[in-house]
Computed example of a mutant assay.
Amino acid sequence: MTPRRKKRLALVLALVLGLGATVGLVLYALNQNMDLFYTPTELVNGKPDGTKPEVGQRLRIGGMVVKGSVKRDPESLRVSFQVADTGPAVTVTYDGILPDLFREGQGIVAQGVLVNPTTVKAHEVLAKHDENYMPPEVAEAMKKNHSKLQYTEEQLQGSAQ
Rank of each mutant, 00 (worst) to 15 (best):
L19N: 03
L19E: 00
L19F: 11
G20Q: 08
G20Y: 13
G20V: 09
G20S: 13
G20M: 10
A21N: 12
A21K: 01
T22S: 15
V23P: 00
V23E: 05
G24R: 05
V26G: 01
V26H: 04
V26K: 03
V26Y: 05
L27Q: 14
L27C: 04
A29Q: 11
A29L: 12
L30Y: 12
N31T: 08
N31G: 10
N31S: 14
N31P: 00
N31V: 02
Q32P: 01
Q32V: 06
Q32C: 04
M34L: 15
D35V: 12
L36F: 10
L36A: 09
L36I: 07
L36M: 11
L36C: 00
L36T: 12
F37M: 12
F37C: 02
F37A: 10
F37V: 11
Y38Q: 00
Y38A: 01
Y38H: 02
T39G: 13
T39Y: 07
P40H: 14
L43D: 03
V44M: 11
N45F: 10
G46C: 08
G46T: 07
G46E: 07
K47L: 13
K47P: 03
P48D: 10
P48N: 09
P48M: 09
P48G: 10
D49A: 15
D49H: 12
D49L: 14
D49T: 13
D49Q: 14
G50S: 09
T51R: 14
P53H: 11
P53S: 11
E54P: 00
E54W: 03
V55T: 15
G56W: 02
G56Y: 01
G56T: 00
Q57H: 03
Q57N: 06
Q57F: 05
R58H: 14
R58K: 15
R58P: 10
L59H: 02
L59I: 05
R60Q: 08
R60G: 06
R60Y: 00
R60A: 02
I61W: 04
G62W: 01
G62C: 06
G63H: 09
G63R: 05
G63E: 07
G63P: 08
M64S: 14
M64V: 15
M64I: 15
V65Y: 06
V65E: 06
V65D: 04
V65I: 13
V66W: 03
V66Q: 13
V66F: 04
V66L: 14
K67E: 15
K67G: 03
K67I: 14
K67H: 07
G68W: 04
G68I: 05
S69I: 03
V70P: 01
V70K: 01
V70L: 06
V70T: 08
K71T: 07
K71P: 00
R72Q: 08
R72A: 08
R72G: 00
D73T: 05
D73H: 06
D73N: 14
D73Y: 04
P74F: 07
E75T: 10
S76K: 07
S76V: 05
S76E: 03
L77H: 08
L77Q: 13
L77D: 12
R78L: 14
R78G: 03
R78K: 15
R78D: 11
R78S: 12
V79Y: 02
V79H: 04
V79W: 01
V79D: 00
S80Q: 14
S80R: 15
Q82N: 11
Q82V: 02
Q82A: 08
A84M: 05
A84K: 09
A84T: 07
A84G: 03
D85W: 09
T86C: 00
G87I: 09
G87Q: 11
